[in-house]
Design a protein around this nucleic acid. Structure first.
Lengths: 191, 191
DNA sequence: GAAATATATTGAGACTGCCTCAACTTGTCT
DNA sequence: AGACAAGTTGAGGCAGTCTCAATATATTTC
């Protein structure tokens, strides 16, 4: 019944915990194989559980994604904070953007989920996306303050570009996503 | 039975022609309202026709899109050719890219369809996409030859970027797509 | 250790969508 | 008017989403 959230309330029944874990593992496989709109029915089936059980643990696809990726997303945000100290402001921004693209390219369709989630406050993925956006915000602010970034670039711009490049990666090849990210980042440099 | 292709073979029966037109009109509305994965079932329903009729005219979604957009795509390619003469090579490229983004942003999901179609030779949309790509190719070649474009930018890069920006437009707002395209194009300039 | 109780699981069922194809209808041509 | 090609129909098979009453199981209590 309760999602990741570091489980503060009450602890789950043993069978529930087991099914929860199996579902998560099954979802990870399915998303990797089929992208974020893999069949939930199949995820349940492959977890050896009835579909109702899946829905009782994860009311929707976003909840499943949050449980699967929430930690990773918070880690990405943390990486952003760390980079604030090191290296040149623009290089830090660029390095983080690369990491963010790699993250958003994990499953086919993930970039689109992230774009939806940032707009939709009721999405279970919203909070995690906001954390990522906030990290981007600081990197952008610093690079701009240092005069290394175009004046008119904002964090939402960066967020959208990162997801767009992940999307390109899904459509053509990961290498192509990387390639275009390089061009794009160059375009963001102050000159 | 026969798609757009300027109808060279034999002319259709009157009722077939009527249904074909109705289906196309219905599809245009549905795609505009719901994006390119609107329900085909509903398109048929709203055209006042059984779903089998839809499938007999258009074996799949791509065929419907080709019938709906083929002419427009060829026009876009032609615009590219015209631009080859006028204005600075880079400006021509940029202007064309803007037009291409606007075109790919016509329906939600269209950018993705174009990315798929260019890779998939068996897609009914493939030829039209190739025409667009070819137009981009010439603009890229000219801008590069004039030393106004980064050496390493290719037509497929441009194609992907255009569709990616249309995608951003769908996810956030058309204005955001435009905005990021500007940044991106700047990144493609030789310096 | 057996009830009592709270917590989970189940799977049928009501939807919607995709696509096919055998039976039927209708336009067109002579 | 009749014949035949061309077109249309819609039921039916399949898969997916999501819900909820019935059922089963863990845990707690005595």
């Amino acid at each position: 019944m309760n999602t990741g959230e570091s489980t503060p309330p009450r602890r789950m029944r043993a069978d529930a915990r087991r099914n929860y874990d199996r579902l998560l593992a099954s979802a990870a496989t399915a998303f990797a194989e089929r992208g974020t709109d893999a069949s939930l029915e199949e995820i349940a089936r492959r977890a050896g559980v009835a579909n109702g059980t899946l829905y009782s643990h994860f009311p929707n696809r976003q909840a499943l994604l949050e449980a699967l990726l929430g930690d990773r997303m918070r880690a990405l945000a943390a990486t952003g904070e760390e980079l604030l100290g090191r290296s040149s402001p623009f290089e830090a921004l660029a390095a983080w953007a690369e990491a963010a693209v790699a993250h958003a390219a994990r499953y086919r369709g993930l970039g689109a989920s992230f774009m939806r989630a940032i707009e939709d406050e009721s999405s279970d993925l919203h909070a995690a996306c906001e954390a990522v956006l906030a990290a981007g915000e600081r990197l952008v602010a610093r690079a701009r303050a240092a005069g290394e970034l175009r004046e008119d670039v904002t964090a939402p711009d960066l967020y959208a570009l990162v997801n767009a490049m992940a999307w390109v990666g899904e459509q053509s090849s990961p290498a192509q996503g990387e390639r275009l990210l390089t061009f794009t980042l160059d375009g963001l440099r102050a000159r």
